[in-house]
Write a protein that binds this DNA or RNA. Structure first.
Lengths: 140, 140
DNA sequence: CGACAAATTAGACTTCTTCTAATATATTGA
DNA sequence: TCAATATATTAGAAGAAGTCTAATTTGTCG
């Protein structure tokens, strides 16, 4: 009774998305899509890949993160100026962000509800609602 | 029956915040704090200042925007990667953001209500809740 | 006014990200 | 399987946003 091979899962997901399963993409997909939800930056993932012995350039990491985002394997989160986070949790959810530590924590969408949403500006439709709860150490 | 001189308003607000009213700060304060609510970037405001004949360096514009934010004359909004917006509306509010045009529109906080907020991570307290409603052209 | 603290500045620098054009790799059809 | 073709990858240059530094200028206060 083995679990399904994780790498074949990555492979399937790449194929399903219409992305050629190259060595680099496959390796990055495995790093990103196996295991729990994660928040990575490009530099961050590049370092991790190198440490894992995967030979991949930073440019490819950027390309891959954007492609994965386009096909819905990742979500991009804008939290801090000058730095993009990519989130492996693609379900509808929001974030706690601790400004002191830079830590990001998911909040499943069903835990939150927003009411009183005004109509979007004329001629536009809502694509997504992002809620970021900024916290800092302290309190009770 | 004149309105109160706008520049003396800017002056008062600078003094109240404990910031020396230098030529540059005063001029930027007038650009920012007179007239309606605005969303500016540093480059953006710098260009506007130059166009208005105000001699000020980009470094000072950055310094000033950050100082104004610290003392509560502005609010910083993180919306797009690689670019910070400063918001002259310091009241509690949220945003519509149109990804196609880059336009940002305020939503007064009293129009929205969020319920089901989970407790913040242990040892932290909530500093602010940011809601960004991303829209795109289209829809009915 | 004169002295001192604070602000401004040009330009170098850092960081994050994108671009470019050369090379390598996957895929397809015969 | 192999060649032909389309697609990816790459190093390094280039770009954009923002910060820093050390020298100069400007407010402030006695």
């Amino acid at each position: 009774m083995n679990k399904a091979s994780p790498s074949s899962t990555a492979l399937r997901r790449l194929r399903a998305a219409g992305l050629r399963p190259t060595r680099q993409r496959l390796a990055l997909a495995r790093l990103l899509l196996e295991g729990g939800d994660r928040h990575v930056t490009a530099e961050n993932l590049h370092g991790e890949a190198l440490a894992a012995g995967i030979q991949v350039s930073l440019a490819t990491v950027y390309n891959t993160l954007h492609q994965f985002t386009e096909v819905g394997l990742l979500r991009e989160a804008m939290i801090e100026p000058g730095r993009s986070y990519f989130d492996t949790n693609t379900a509808d959810h929001h974030h706690f962000f601790c400004e002191a530590t830079g830590e990001l924590q998911d909040i499943p969408a069903q835990h939150l509800s927003v009411s009183g949403l005004p109509a979007p500006p004329f001629g536009t439709e809502i694509r997504r609602v992002d809620i970021i709860i900024r916290v800092r150490p302290g309190g009770v």
